[in-house]
């Protein structure tokens, strides 16, 4: 028989669990868990308990304080409400955690992160990126110094066009470079249109860039 203990998804234990072997919880435990080995709370697992173990790996839900003599790992999808005390604490991206962390002593790998809040799911990150993309025009208008790398190329094109007519006919530059820009940016029509709308700000930006050079 396997040495490890499994509590299946429909199992509900109310009380205290003591043991000296790995315990895998796919169901629910209310009470307390004390192990000398590894506790794994699977995705379907719900543990409302004070936990003491050597290693604790959470992929499901844990409500209660967790004390480990080696490590506590919160994998993606884990939810933990309670205090963690362990030499090593690993919080994965996508783990939710509310509580305090106490990193006790020096573990084998002192890479423990003292993070009190970690709920950065991939979805949230994606949202962050889109907002950044949407605010790019504003950012560039305000600070031409630090445009995002993706938008660098169009800016360079504008510079060249701007420089050429500026040498021939200074001060009449504003209308001409715009036309030239729209011609040369056939590949990126949408961005070109947006840029023509924001015309008034363009010259100053160009001038600044030119002067920078």
């Amino acid at each position: 028989m396997p040495a490890s203990t499994t509590l299946g998804p429909t199992i509900h234990v109310r009380g205290r669990i003591l043991g000296e072997e790995d315990l895998r919880v796919e169901g629910r435990v209310d009470g307390a868990i004390e192990l000398s080995e590894t506790l794994i709370v699977e995705e379907s697992g719900v543990v409302l308990a004070e936990i003491q173990a050597r290693d604790v790996v959470v992929r499901g839900i844990v409500i209660g304080n967790v004390t480990a003599t080696d490590s506590v790992t919160l994998d993606a999808g884990a939810k933990l409400m309670g205090d963690i005390e362990a030499p090593r604490v690993i919080l994965a991206d996508g783990a939710a955690f509310k509580g305090s962390v106490k990193v006790t002593g020096a573990g084998p790998r002192p890479r423990a992160r003292k993070t009190s809040v970690a709920s950065a799911s991939p979805v949230a990150r994606g949202a962050g990126r889109t907002t950044v993309a949407g605010s790019i025009p504003r950012v560039r208008a305000a600070r031409p110094d630090a445009p995002p790398p993706q938008e660098d190329e169009p800016t360079v094109v504008v510079r060249r066009q701007d420089v050429a007519p500026a040498q021939k006919a200074p001060k009449k530059a504003p209308p001409k470079p715009a036309k030239a820009a729209s011609k040369k940016k056939t590949a990126k029509k949408k961005t070109a249109k947006k840029r023509t709308k924001a015309r008034p700000k363009v010259p100053s930006r160009k001038k600044r860039k030119v002067s920078r050079r």
């Binding site: 203990t5 499994t6 998804p9 429909t10 199992i11 234990v13 009380g15 669990i17 043991g19 072997e21």
Partner: peptide, 30 residues
């Protein structure tokens, strides 16, 4: 199969309920 096993060194003091097979190698009180 999601079979529940309570290993030989495990002691559970409390109540177990569920709807699946249970194999007990350890100790259960309650």
């Amino acid at each position: 199969m999601a079979n529940t096993v309570i290993g030989s060194t495990i002691v559970i003091d409390g109540e177990i309920s569920g709807e699946e097979d249970l194999t007990v190698l350890g100790t259960v009180k309650g």
